[in-house]
Nucleic acid binder design. Structure first.
Lengths: 142, 142
DNA sequence: CTATCTGTAACCAATGCAGTTGCGGAGCAT
DNA sequence: ATGCTCCGCAACTGCATTGGTTACAGATAG
């Protein structure tokens, strides 16, 4: 069980930010959180059964990788009127391709690789998921 | 040759925004732009030889799909200290998977599909590229 | 009952981006 | 040459997003 404060220190951020992420992970049923003394977050499922895609999906805002302009383009132009319908399936496919890669890596895999690099074995797998969530959350641009 | 004003009207945006995108496309050697009366943008290469990936790369800011926290995480925690090195190659792979899909679709393909949907055939392929650039540029979140 | 931790709301500051305006310059037409 | 059209670029604005921070209520163990 790791407290939000410890995890926050690990990635140089604020405990509240970590708690926000943990909330999403908790809603997705990946971690269970305990208030009170000695509380904190723990993985509630087998880390081998949680993929990066699961974390990604739990943490993302639910919007598309590429956003088509919401505003209805002009009907006067043939291109503007149909381009979105043409592009959307292509973008969806690209998005799924990316998710496919994420789906093939589990939290256990990540934890294992981290352990290889760190000679010490002091860290349990629980915070690995948390940190992964925090890092994934750090989305960039497009 | 399409003027920035016409293209802007087609996607409900501002001419200057279109010109900014055109500048990127021009730097990448995909379109040539003519000032003056009857000027505008034209594809300078075969649309079948320009992929969505080319447009995407020309237009994007050059940053990663997933951004790892720039700040050096704590060395005190084994996870925080190594998580980035573990995650980076995975994210790169995911990014490339997405780009792979984009690479398989050409401007000519999307132009063709647009024409299928629009009964009319009045639009040339030039603005197709422009609109694609504009739309791709509309990146959302992650 | 107290100390510890989470959950959540509210707020602030920084950031980024589309949109806009205002030039200067380039090319075509007359 | 003159004027019209159109791009290039710089500067500014306004809006939205987001991480960080503070504050406080609720839950839990000792």
């Amino acid at each position: 069980a790791q407290t939000s404060e410890r995890i926050a220190a690990s990635v140089n951020t604020n405990p509240v930010v970590v708690r926000r992420i943990m909330g999403a992970l908790r809603n997705a049923g990946m971690v269970s959180v305990q208030p009170g003394v000695g509380g904190g977050a723990t993985l509630s499922r087998d880390p081998a059964g949680i993929s990066l895609l699961d974390v990604y999906r739990a943490v993302e805002d639910g919007d598309e990788l590429f956003s088509l302009p919401a505003s209805e383009p002009s009907r006067s132009c043939n291109v503007g009127g149909h381009i979105r319908d043409v592009l959307r399936p292509i973008f969806c496919q690209a998005h799924r391709a990316m998710e496919g890669v994420l789906a093939r890596v589990s939290i256990a895999d990540v934890g294992e690789q981290v352990m290889e690099r760190a000679q010490a074995s002091g860290c349990c797998g629980a915070d690995t998921a948390a940190v992964v969530g925090a890092v994934v959350r750090e989305r960039a641009k497009a």
